[in-house]
Simulated scan of single mutants.
Amino acid sequence: MEFEERLAALATKVQNQREAIQTEEATKNAFVMPFISTILGYDVFNPLEVVPEFTADVGVKRGEKVDYAIMRDGEVQILIECKKSAEPLKVEHASQLFRYFSVTNARIAVLTNGEVYNFYTDLDAPNKMDDKPFLVLDLGDIDETLLAELQKLSKENFDLDSVISAAEELKYVGAIKRALGGQLREPSDEFVKFLTTKVYEGSYTQKIREQFNPLVAKAIKQFLNEQVNDRLKTALGSSFIGSSQMEAPATVVESEAAVEENLESDTGIVTTQEELDGYQIVKAIACSEVKPYRVAHRDSKSYFAILLDDNNRKPIARLWFNGKKQKYLGLFDENKVETKQPLDNLEDIYGFAAEIRATVGRYEGQANG
């Protein structure tokens, strides 16, 4: 199983089980140990690789423990401190990490609740752990741009120097992305004022602030929708180049106009977390054939479509999860004829990895032929 597939499987497990996890110990057993073993590749039962309840004398804090220490060549490389699942992570939770960071050889410290993993190093001052993480991995919303750096901390690909050299850029780019995402979801007064003063020449009074607050929120929403629509139109347009010179294949059910009409009229759609989890699994499987960003999704009232290049003519799979009982995975043959496969759980999707990869491979072969 590829790195992305293992990560997607763990993310699905976390989403499905987190409500049942009520203690820190349960979090470690259910989520953190699998992360160390299946994602980072270290043997959690080998004390030469992973030391649980790692202890070192730290000033007057003798006998204090860190949940896990990952070892390489007899030296501590990564320290991991755990909090219980669903508990928001705060830097105050990392007191042991701060103390241990200065007295061990570790250059990487991790604070996690099993779903979010905050990675720290010592960019601001040597041998002193930074207050802010340089990498944040959220299994509920995986940022695929971080996966290459995460792999460098695995046993197989360990490259600490490369991680440290990229840490400063990762730290600030990640922080900016999270700050921007927060502003787009809920604009602050400062952000509203910044944009208002760009378009309004009068004084920025309380009355103007109240007037522009909803306008800024509306403009942001419209802007994001337009960006998505532009991308969709580009994908649709590129797939229909030359269509006037050739007859469309009989197996293509929907025309460009029909697709756009459906997208316009398909209201009342509710995208569930289970559908998104299934999409992540299919995407992880397809990533052995194409880059992750090329695997897109569109939801409808009947099914959840997973497409290559966001192109309706390149269906990879469909998730038929809207029924009350049985769930199905729709797969496509070389003629784009769909066959529904029953699923008992999301993990069953991995059993159809060969079919999913074959479908993506056919589209790539057609494009290169």
Score class of each variant (00 low, 15 high):
Leu215Glu: 06
Gln77Lys: 15
Phe223Trp: 11
Lys177His: 11
Ala30Trp: 08
Leu123Met: 06
Ser239Ala: 13
Ala367Asp: 09
Thr205Arg: 03
Lys13Asp: 08
Thr234Trp: 06
Val216Gln: 00
Pro52Ala: 06
Ile142Asn: 02
Leu135Pro: 07
Leu153Trp: 03
Met129Tyr: 05
Arg62Trp: 05
Asp333Asn: 15
Asn118Ser: 04
Leu331Ala: 03
Glu49Tyr: 09
Lys193Cys: 05
Ala9Phe: 09
Asn229Gly: 00
Ile80Val: 14
Arg313His: 11
Leu146Gln: 13
Val44Asp: 01
Gly361Gln: 12
Arg357Leu: 11
Gln341Lys: 11
Pro34Lys: 00
Arg99Thr: 11
Lys327Phe: 06
Leu10Ala: 04
Met246Gln: 13
Ala284His: 02
Phe31Asn: 00
Leu263Lys: 09
Arg18Cys: 10
Leu276Arg: 13
Arg362Glu: 03
Asp143Cys: 08
Glu169Asn: 13
Leu10Gly: 02
Ile21Cys: 11
Ala217Val: 06
Cys287Pro: 01
Ala56Asn: 01
Gln326Pro: 03
Ser154Ala: 11
Ala286Gly: 04
Val163Cys: 04
His93Ile: 08
Pro315Arg: 06
Cys82Gly: 02
Ala86Asn: 15
Phe35Gln: 00
Lys28Glu: 13
Ile241Phe: 09
Gln280Arg: 15
Val216Ser: 01
Arg185Ile: 09
Glu264His: 12
Lys83Gln: 04
Ile108Thr: 06
His93Cys: 07
Arg107Trp: 10
Thr196Cys: 08
Glu144Gly: 07
Tyr100Asn: 05
Val253Ile: 15
Asn335Ala: 09
Lys283Gly: 02
Val50His: 08
Glu364Gln: 09
Phe134Trp: 03
Val110Glu: 01
Val136Pro: 02
Gly369Lys: 11
Asn335Lys: 11
Met33Gln: 08
Asn225Cys: 02
Thr359Val: 13
Glu260Ala: 08
Val295Leu: 02
Gly181His: 10
Ser255Val: 09
Glu247Met: 10
Pro47Glu: 03
Asp57Ser: 12
Arg209Asp: 09
Asn229Gln: 12
Leu263Asp: 12
Val116Cys: 04
Arg313Gly: 10
Ala257Phe: 10
Ile316Val: 15
Lys84Gly: 05
Ile356Cys: 02
Gly361Met: 06
Lys177Thr: 10
Asn345Pro: 00
Glu92Ser: 14
Val259Leu: 14
His93Ala: 10
Ile80Leu: 13
Asp266Arg: 07
Glu49Ser: 09
Gly323Gln: 12
Ser243Gln: 12
Ile39Lys: 00
Asn335Gln: 13
Met1Asn: 02
Glu289Pro: 00
Lys198Gln: 14
Ala367Gly: 00
Glu334Ile: 13
Ser154Gly: 12
Glu81Met: 09
Lys336Phe: 07
Ser85Glu: 03
Ala257Thr: 13
Thr267Lys: 10
Val228Ala: 10
Glu226Cys: 03
Glu274Lys: 05
Leu308Glu: 04
Phe332Leu: 03
Leu329Cys: 01
Phe31Gly: 01
Leu236Phe: 12
Glu19Arg: 12
Ser243Thr: 13
Leu224Ile: 15
Phe212Asn: 01
Phe31His: 02
Ile108Asp: 02
Gln227Trp: 05
Trp320Pro: 00
Glu24Pro: 13
Glu186Thr: 14
Glu186Gly: 08
Phe332Ile: 05
Ala94Asp: 07
